Simulated assay, not measured.
Amino acid sequence: MSTQETCPLCMPANETVLWSNDTLRVIAVEDSSHPGFTRVIWRDHVREMTELPAAARNQIMDAVWLVEQYQRGVLQPDKVNLAQFGNMVPHVHWHIIPRWSCDSHFPEAIWAAAPLRSIVEKQRWDARKAQIDAVLPHYHAALTKALSAL
């Protein structure tokens, strides 16, 4: 079986696609602990950014920057994390993750163990998360419209 046949980004299932074209797609990552988490995925099975021609690298990064801009504008996080690893899934994709100083993992990476939180800190995050969840549909709609103009 080829790598493409086993690659979860080549053979997606149950994705919430916000926007796509012939070369990439932007999805909402369904992660209740990290609202607004968005992924930009290169459509073809390519392992490294440097395997893409310069114009293609610019195209994917334009989408990444746009996602970050709309996260900052609509969701108003304290910080935005950008990550492109490919260790687990060797297929070019970017994680754009809005972060709040009171979120469940801050200041650690979302893939790290969550720091211990007091009841008050958990309640603070729950209240902030409810506000974020309320604006997520607006973020998704605004981002989709902006991506369509790329």
Rank of each mutant, 00 (worst) to 15 (best):
Glu121His: 09
Trp42His: 09
Arg25Val: 01
Met11Arg: 14
Arg128Thr: 13
Thr23Gly: 08
Gly36Gln: 05
Ala127Phe: 11
Ile97Pro: 02
Leu52Cys: 12
Ala149Pro: 03
Thr3Glu: 14
Ser20Leu: 05
Gly36Glu: 05
Ile132Glu: 05
Val80Ile: 15
Trp42Asn: 00
Ser20Tyr: 03
Arg25Leu: 07
Leu24His: 07
His91Thr: 05
Gln69Thr: 15
Glu48Pro: 00
Met49Asp: 07
Thr50Asn: 12
Val80Phe: 01
Trp125Pro: 05
Glu48Leu: 09
Pro137Asn: 08
Ala63Pro: 10
Asp44Ser: 11
Ile97Asp: 01
Asn87Lys: 01
Gly36Cys: 07
Arg117Tyr: 05
Arg39Ile: 12
Asp44Arg: 13
Leu150Arg: 13
Pro90Met: 01
Trp125Tyr: 09
Ser101Gly: 10
Cys10Gln: 05
Glu51Met: 06
Met49Glu: 14
Pro77Cys: 10
Arg25Glu: 04
Glu15Gln: 15
Glu121Ile: 10
Ile119Asn: 13
Arg39Thr: 07
Val135Thr: 11
Val26Arg: 10
Ala112Ser: 13
Val74Arg: 00
Arg57Cys: 09
Gln76Ser: 12
Leu82Gln: 10
Val80Lys: 02
Trp111Gly: 10
Pro90His: 03
Asp62Glu: 11
Ser20His: 11
Thr23Asp: 14
Ile41Phe: 06
Leu18Pro: 04
Asn14Met: 09
Val26Phe: 04
Val80Asn: 06
Ser20Pro: 04
Met11Ser: 11
Glu5Tyr: 06
Glu51Gly: 04
Thr16Trp: 00
Leu82Tyr: 15
Trp42Ile: 02
Ile60Glu: 05
Arg25Lys: 14
His95Leu: 06
Ala127Cys: 13
Val29Lys: 01
Gln131Trp: 00
Thr6Leu: 12
Trp19Cys: 02
Thr38Gly: 00
Ala56His: 10
Val40Ser: 04
Leu136Trp: 05
Ile119Phe: 11
Arg117Asn: 07
Ser118Arg: 06
Gln69Pro: 00
His138Ala: 13
Arg47Asp: 13
Glu68Arg: 01
Asn21Cys: 13
